[in-house]
Amino acid sequence: MFKLAMNLLVRKCQSSKFAQVNTGYGVVRAIHSKKYLLSLILVLAQPLLTSCSLFDQSVSGSSFDSHLIEQTHSVVALSFEAKGQAGLDRLKQDRTQEFCSTQRGFKGSTSATNALDPQSSQNNSIGQLTEQLRLENLAMIQQPKDGNYLGDFKRGELIAQDGRGKTWTDPQGSVNGGNCYNCHRLSKNEISYGSLGPSLYQYGKLRGITSLDVYLTKVKEGASDPLIQYTWGVLMNSKAYDLCTVMPRFGVTSSASAHEQNSPILTQEQIKDLMSLLLDPRSPVND
């Protein structure tokens, strides 16, 4: 719905790139008519969104077309089946997912330091929308109930290595991994690491945790320490810092599906262990 609103806008600016033809997948078009109405309301509520040139700048390589979006929805509706724990409700996008589907540059941060900066303050409508959605994500982050942000780096390493969880072949209710090594370099001795995300090797050390004393002070300070607050936030919900990052939201539920709302990828306890993996001077990450 949200995407349709944006597309209606863009459509006013651009002539349709693709001829409207019957591909045989238009069967659920009627369902979307209500969405059009809602979309228009959304459009009226977002007067700043009406500049064509801004969209041209930010949406690269593709001509957005509401008919095309409908066709795509129809194709999706015809093409997937629920299997194992992966239900069809996973295809329902939340606002962040819808918006980020239209942002087609690569959104992986090239360095962890850059990700520390607040969202680039583009003085345009896309920038405002990005900021609005980012704040929505920020509001989703929960702080640990006991005020303790740290766990055990040894358990953290196991979670970072473990890539299981949430696929249709993973048993429902099984413990999920964090998949960290898929994208990040972490400890010095693990050479099988991916490069989609920045290196996190010496994450804590490079940010001033040079001794156990410093670390224990930060542990005591907890939420009031900016590094603790930031690291917890990124692990809980990366989208609160870099809206369209490829990093999953590990501690909140990103899916719009009802039955998964209380089942984030990782538990708070697991995220505490990852915090220690990144920050503890005794962790192999800070070796």
């Binding site: 790139k17 693709f18 001829a19 033809v21 591909t23 997948y25 593709s62 077309d65 095309l68 979006i69 066709q71 795509t72 194709v75 999706v76 992966a86 996973r90 295809l91 329902k92 996008q93 962040t96 997912q97 980020c100 589907s101 239209t102 087609r104 949430k166 989208k239 490829v246 999953p248 939201r249 539920t253 990103s254 899916s255 998964e260 990828i265």
Partner: peptide, 21 residues
């Protein structure tokens, strides 16, 4: 041509528990 355009949409469609496309 429309199937190409739909394929492109699907390629960039972010969804699911991990927000992946």
């Amino acid at each position: 041509r429309e199937m190409y355009a739909i394929g492109q949409e699907l390629f960039y469609m972010r969804a699911g528990t991990h927000d992946f496309s």
